[in-house]
């Protein structure tokens, strides 16, 4: 009897120890990974606040000799950043609303409806991910130009409104929603759209949060397509403006890095805000 107790104590003691070691290993690797990850961002920051002439100093300095905060203000004022931010916000926000809506509808359909041609359509959809952008950029531009959408928000938003990735993500997620729930609502006489709105959407918190994060980031950072559609500098989005700062012969690195740091703030806010729902949403669905 007492032997058994001793054994149990030993086991639990060993488990505690191994748990402690495991936690320590995890913490150390997280810290190392964080250092590697954040060094470039740290470097970006010190580049942004250095005195401008220090960038090309022969000895590389880990710490700036002084902090020139005015770099941020000067950089903002040298180019029409205010207008670019307005454009970027408008495009990203409208795109999020439209894209999330379309992707949820389509993903739900592929997950939960049986209809002829479904698999073929789904494969075709996936295959759009395999086309290099250089292939379709010209025909796409011709279409947008004919619609009169050059230099407009719509020209940027519409062609990216349905994203195969998002649809795929939603489909994978919604396949795990029990059919019984949908069936029960149908028997209760709910219309198809009511089922989607009242049964499926409330269960889809996490995937909606992920879609919002992804769509916002993609539209905010988009480069290859907006630079084709947005030709006037007033119509530019922030990344196009940042690109403009990289001259062919000369780049003002302090300004570029300062403005780059500012440009990721909206995404950080979006992520910090929605990651809460991301976790809560999963807990709420009862999937866990």
């Amino acid at each position: 009897m007492s032997e058994k107790v001793m054994l149990m104590l030993k086991v639990s003691y060993n488990r505690q120890m191994s748990q402690k070691i495991k936690n320590a290993v995890i913490w150390v690797s997280v810290v190392v990974a964080a250092l590697v990850m954040f060094f470039p961002i740290y470097w970006m920051f010190v580049t942004a606040v250095r005195p401008r002439e220090e960038i090309f100093a022969p000895e590389v300095q880990l710490w700036p000799s002084e902090f020139v905060w005015s770099n941020f203000v000067e950089a903002w004022n040298t180019l029409p950043f205010t207008q670019w931010y307005i454009n970027s916000f408008a495009i990203a926000l409208i795109a999020v609303v439209i894209t999330v809506f379309i992707n949820l509808l389509a993903g739900y359909t592929f997950a939960k409806y049986d209809f002829p041609g479904r698999n073929v359509i789904f494969l075709l959809l996936l295959s759009t991910l395999m086309i290099p952008i250089q292939v379709y950029i010209v025909p796409e531009y011709l279409i947008v130009a004919q619609l009169g959408w050059v230099n407009t928000y719509w020209g940027v938003i519409f062609p990216r409104a349905a994203e195969a990735f998002g649809i795929f993500l939603v489909r994978q997620f919604m396949m795990s929603i029990p059919d019984e729930l949908i069936e029960a609502a149908r028997i209760d006489g709910a219309s198809e759209f009511t089922i989607f709105r009242k049964v499926v959407l409330p269960l889809s918190g996490p995937v909606i949060a992920v879609l919002i994060i992804f769509t916002f980031m993609w539209r905010w950072n988009d480069f290859a397509w907006p630079i084709v559609v947005l030709q006037d500098q007033e119509a530019y989005t922030v990344p196009l403006g940042l690109n403009l700062m990289q001259g062919a012969y000369y780049t003002e690195w302090t300004y570029l890095m300062a403005m780059t740091l500012v440009s990721i703030l909206p995404m950080l806010l979006i992520f910090i805000f929605f990651q809460r729902y991301f976790v809560q949403g999963i807990a709420r669905t009862g999937l866990k």
Binding site: I102, N103, L105, A106, Y108, T109, F110, Y113, D114, F115, R118, I121, L124, L125, T128, I131, V135, Y136, V138, P139, E140, I143, F158, P159, A161, A162, A164, I167, R186, S191, E192, F193, F196
Partner: peptide, 29 residues
């Protein structure tokens, strides 16, 4: 069947955009 009809309605917006911006160019290429 309303379910089947709904399926088509739901998938049409995505399909329209994708056919227009992706399949026409690739077929032409």
């Amino acid at each position: 069947n309303p379910e089947r009809r709904a399926a088509y309605y739901l998938v049409v917006p995505a399909l329209l955009v994708i056919v227009l911006v992706a399949f026409y160019p690739i077929a032409y290429s």
